[in-house]
Amino acid sequence: MSKSFFIDTTVCTACRGCQVACKQWKNLPAEITKNRGTIENPADVSFNTYKVVRMREEVIDGKLRWLFFPEQCRHCIEPPCLDTAGDKSAIFKDDATGAVIYTAKTKGLNAKEIIESCPYNIPRKGKNGALAKCDMCLDRVQNGLLPACVKTCPTGAMNFGERDEMLAIANKRLGEVKKISQAARLLDADDVRVIYLVAYNPELYHKFAVASVDNLGITRQTALAKMFRPVKNIASGLV
């Protein structure tokens, strides 16, 4: 038994209930921001912001699309950050859920190395030297509640549950969306516990929508090579 998210970006309205619900549940402080010529804010994930809805305006096949991508830690099935850390008191995987958890002991890690090892560029270092990111609301999940971001989502963009259930919904929705957009696909579904459905080329949504080695150091390339292991494609097998 393990858990997964399914994030259906095609029904996300960028209401950003998830962004606030995350901070609310975790008592995370707000950041001081400014309008940067877009309503997307904060500009990036941070030690205090585990979730950011990315917003991109793209003209696709002559039509304007406003693409929304609620970004967060993917809780990789074989987390490169965990391997890079090599210290289970700092980064470990919760057996029951598969959640990748960072503890206060991440303070002792080489933060740069950990961040670089993430194919999605997620972990962030705080002032105290520790690293932080989404923890799947493990406290809630262990007590039978949905993660705060999923619970608050009005449209069904955010889903959470048993991995096989999530994969089944993901593939069902993929089939439906493909009828409208041939480019629709699930992102890195075999390798992560946060499975995104996008209707168009994922790079249009966000630079790190899919695992990426662009502009990053050698650590991440090594991590990626490891991550995309040559095993059977569980998720795509269901497509």
Binding site: A30, I32, T33, N35
Partner: peptide
């Protein structure tokens, strides 16, 4: 409210 001002800090 800081959380909401974080999302929309300025008139545009």
């Amino acid at each position: 409210q800081a959380w909401l001002l974080e999302l929309q800090p300025q008139v545009f």
